[in-house]
Amino acid sequence: MALSIEELKAAILEKALNGPKPQLYLKDFYACDPDSKPRVIKKAANEMVTEGKMVFWSSGSTTMYAAKGRAKDEESRGT
């Protein structure tokens, strides 16, 4: 059975905080709940950005997600 949206958000955050990769593609979160549809996972991940727990990192052509504070940020390197 698919996880509830709150359980899904917790699983996504756990992966974003403690996974080996600091920045993840949306698809990398699919494994958090194989029973949830990609659109539900997208919704959960995007809601967490609105809640301030995660951030988008974008190259311009593609977008990745990171737990707040884990993203590679040009500005924090003083540029």
């Binding site: 609105t50 951030v55 988008f56 974008s58 190259s59 311009g60 977008t63 993203a71 940020d73 040009e74």
Partner: peptide, 13 residues
């Protein structure tokens, strides 16, 4: 250099 976490609140593009 391009890319980063810049954006406006609630928008991912």
């Amino acid at each position: 250099k391009h890319g980063g976490i810049v954006g406006v609140f609630g928008y991912g593009g």
